[in-house]
Design a protein around this nucleic acid. Structure first.
Lengths: 259, 259
DNA sequence: CGTACCTTTGACGGCTGTCAAAGGAAGTGG
DNA sequence: CCACTTCCTTTGACAGCCGTCAAAGGTACG
């Protein structure tokens, strides 16, 4: 199954035509350079991008031109789904590492929603998880120390990575500079540096270049106050209701606008 | 047109059957007391509520049992739309003032999405605005002083109110205690008090009981760094695409599960 | 090989939290 | 209608986390 299809299948059953549709979308992948910009604030909404490979992020700027990263995107995520109902972007989007993108026009969401209730609900689920992730970050940001925030973000990212590929806490890819980590958590790069030094001094973990090595898993989990509940795939009642729809013979017109 | 219908009609054209469906939903309104709880964390997802009258909020708790308000809901908002794709609530929801609620089972979203692409897209638009509001708060929270945060929240709330009823900046309803304002912005009630005192001392505005009176509109706008762009109703291309669907004769089965 | 960016370290200041206590307002029950 | 209780508001003192400024060394990319 394709990357996107398996992301959606976490939430709903995909019909054969749903899967064909998603596979077809993915057939137009193209490479993206490190730091490449996908859009800027005030740009008209055009393409959304499925991130097939690499890391990306969306960014907002304050009036003082400070940067705040809103979300960090990993393979399988849809870049821009947050804003497709707006006329213009408020955020900036760019690649963090080099990678691969699958662009598709934002109006196509309308076709997807019209043709497949299952995919529509899966999109709601995707957006809901993104939003939950954001509220979780807000909670940690407003009520915990810089140290907890750093640990929390590292654990969250690890958990998301672990669903995509085989990774171990002892050492995993983490291509986030200290400056960028500051822009994610809303902290100054100087303070991020002090915090990471402290974590290394206390033998909790070490970040070197583009990797993180966890040395004391138990204390890490303790201090991070991380509860993966908000990343849960579980839904309630919706799959069953969708099944009813299918049994009663809903329409299936997804491939009609196929390119 | 009903409250909910006009909220949705901001984003898409509603067919006669869409409007009938929403009007039918609203026929089951019931009163809700001040401070009434709608659900608690870990409750199974059951009803969503359309807020017809009064103010409500959703809340998350940190591990230290501090409270963080995630969203403040005004008449026309859907309480719980954020979490309907989860199995259990992570947030708490409760009324701020007394009001009126229209409950409906969360699975019904599936029927709506299956039957009306327009309503489905409108739901995406609603969720998108909520999320934009959240990222905006995050931006202000992480990069501006308590004073700016307070001004920003007051202006945002005023702007939302102004779309519902005729209100003037000079004096409008604001049933938020200083403690609650602290829980919204992630600040201590003590500091909220100092900040409000400062704003009153500087002749910017005065909050007394359940009202806010703005004395210096110009400086308020200046200091709040408020840009209403993220509350914009505008969409791009989606209405047109929905119109194409209608012309090509999509299904219309909304009233089939009517109660 | 040079330039730009990232990391590291020190000094200093300020915004905001915590603790504590008292006065005021509002809702409750008799 | 009054008394009581609870919650909200206000004020002062003090501490600490984190931002800013500055400078230097390290690393990577062109």
């Amino acid at each position: 199954m394709s990357l996107l299809a398996s992301a959606m299948a976490r939430y709903v059953e995909l019909s054969a035509s749903d899967q064909r549709y998603l596979a077809n979308l993915e057939s137009h992948a193209r490479p993206a350079a490190r730091q490449q910009r996908l859009w800027m604030p005030h740009d008209r909404i055009g393409s959304l991008y499925i991130l097939q490979d690499g890391w990306a992020c969306t960014i907002r700027r304050t009036v003082d031109d400070e940067r705040q990263v809103i979300e960090v995107l990993l393979p399988g995520d849809i870049i821009g789904i947050r804003e497709f109902t707006f006329r213009r972007h408020v955020s900036e989007a760019r690649m963090i590492t080099a990678g691969t993108l699958i662009p598709f026009p934002h109006e196509q969401i309308v076709d997807i929603v019209a043709a497949s209730p299952s995919l529509a609900i899966a999109l709601f689920a995707v957006i809901g998880r993104q939003e939950a992730s954001l509220t979780e970050r807000m909670l940690v940001t407003l009520h915990h120390s810089a140290r907890s925030q750093v640990l929390h973000f590292i654990l969250e990212t690890f958990t998301r990575l672990a669903r995509l590929q085989s990774v171990t806490l002892e050492s995993f890819t983490f291509p986030i500079t200290q400056r960028l980590l500051g822009e994610i958590l809303g902290l100054s790069p100087v303070h991020i540096n002090r915090t990471l030094s402290g974590l290394e001094r206390d033998r909790l973990l070490k970040k070197h270049r583009t990797r993180v090595e966890v040395h004391d898993r138990r204390r890490l989990l303790e201090e991070a106050a991380f509860d993966a509940g908000y990343l849960s795939d579980e839904m309630d009642g919706l799959r069953e209701r969708l099944a009813c729809l299918r049994d009663s013979g809903g329409p299936d017109r997804l491939m009609s606008s196929d390119s």
